[in-house]
């Protein structure tokens, strides 16, 4: 539900907007224009004076640009120099890391230990639970009883040597 008061307000609002006169935009003059005309009036500049004034302004602009460009160039040089420095520092860091890693390398440790007269100790502290019941100096197992006739063995060896047999050599030994 819409109250009559609201309807009235809406109507007034709508009609009010229609009847508002269009604003006329005031022409404003820029600061430079105003300052220029004031300066021209006070200085009584002729056309040459105007030309000099514009030339001077352009010169100042150019000088400002050159100063800015010089500053940018200087910054650019500084950035390049710092980047170069950073690269060198990174290289130095890499070098140091390699030196550090090399110091811990087994080869280096062994070399330094040898120079200090250190020797690798053999483990002698182990105490087995029971005595070793085998002869540690014993050679590989003894051969079993061989009942093959001697002539057969010699013949086999001979044939194997000259390659006249189809036998595969018993190469899979120990």
């Amino acid at each position: 539900m819409t109250s009559t008061r609201i309807l009235t307000r809406r109507r007034l609002g709508a009609t009010g907007a229609q009847h508002v006169p269009a604003r006329r935009r005031r022409r404003t003059r820029g600061f430079v224009q105003v300052a220029g005309s004031v300066a021209a009036d006070r200085l009584h500049l002729n056309s040459y004076g105007h030309a000099y004034l514009w030339f001077g302004a352009a010169l100042i602009g150019i000088l400002f640009y050159l100063a800015l460009a010089a500053q940018v160039t200087q910054s650019s040089y500084d950035i390049t120099r710092l980047q170069d420095q950073q690269r060198q520092l990174v290289a130095e860091q890499d070098q140091l890391r390699y030196q550090e890693v090399t110091l811990h390398a087994p080869a280096q440790v062994q070399q330094q230990a040898a120079q200090s007269g250190m020797q690798r100790a053999a483990p002698t502290a182990y105490v087995p639970a029971q005595q070793v019941a085998i002869d540690l100096q014993a050679p590989a197992g003894a051969a079993g009883t061989d009942a093959t006739p001697l002539w057969e063995r010699y013949l086999a060896a001979l044939f194997n040597k000259v390659g006249g047999t189809r036998d595969v050599m018993a190469a899979g030994r120990h």
């Binding site: 079993g144 009942a147 093959t148 086999a156 189809r166 018993a170």
Partner: peptide
Amino acid sequence: GVLSVGGYRIYDWDHRNHG
């Protein structure tokens, strides 16, 4: 000390009879 397989005679490494 020797076994025939597939037509081949294959020996132990020492050519001995081990019983």
